[in-house]
């Protein structure tokens, strides 16, 4: 464990807790893409298949349970909660799941480290996580209004993966044979997807104006 990875995990943890807290307190999911949240639940499910088979550390197991629990809770709130679901904008959140899931699945079947079920599922979860934010970014472009918490949520989500890139660089130089080029490429693609959002987020923060994404 290094500081970059710990900071990355904490940033990721805060991002999902900020979102869960927002939905739970104001009983609204305005501006949140259910599609993206469902994709994240799928990411965690396919990535943590080894939750009960390989014990790495208490930290690792606890964090996996938190990520699984929070992502499924968020999906439950938006789908089932009698008040929250009313604020879900299903007419705007129309990104098709299979446009993202299928290519990632095909890619995972073609490019992976080992052709085993768990390894292909793990690789699939990496590719999926890289693009899972797309429905959310599309929704933000469409609705154009980004309330603070949603902006912070997306920002923290992008920041966590950027910190992970620093972690991979650190581990590459400190651990022999630490080779995970699939992880590195997926992580870089993911962070680049946030790049333009970061740009507008910093512009709005610097000029102290409301965050507006260009149409």
């Amino acid at each position: 464990m290094n500081i970059f990875r710990l900071a990355g995990d904490m940033t990721h943890l805060v991002s999902v807790l900020v979102l869960l807290l927002k939905i739970h307190t104001i009983k609204s999911c305005a501006g949140i893409s259910l599609k993206t949240q469902e994709l994240y639940a799928l990411v965690f499910t396919t990535r943590y298949l080894d939750l009960f088979t390989d014990y790495i550390s208490l930290y690792n197991t606890v964090m996996k349970l938190i990520f699984l629990g929070s992502s499924f809770s968020i999906v439950w709130y938006i789908r089932r909660h009698k008040i929250v679901r009313r604020s879900y904008d299903k007419d705007q959140d129309t990104f098709r799941h299979y446009f993202i899931v299928l290519p990632c699945l095909v890619l995972a079947l073609l490019i992976h480290h080992k052709f085993t079920f768990k390894e292909v599922m793990w690789t699939f979860s990496l590719y999926l996580e890289a693009v899972a934010i797309l429905p959310q970014l599309v929704l933000l472009q469409r609705t154009r209004n980004i309330d603070n918490l949603t902006g912070q949520y997306v920002f923290l989500l992008g920041a966590y993966r950027a910190l992970y890139i620093l972690n991979w660089i650190y581990r590459h130089y400190t651990e022999p044979h630490y080779v995970h080029w699939i992880t590195w490429i997926a992580g870089i693609v993911q962070t680049l997807l946030y790049a333009d959002f970061f740009y507008y987020y910093f512009q709005s923060w610097k000029n102290n104006v409301k965050l507006q994404l260009p149409a």
Partner: peptide, 10 residues
Amino acid sequence: LDESHYHDEL
């Protein structure tokens, strides 16, 4: 791949 290919990251 060599056995260092472990998934210890979240």
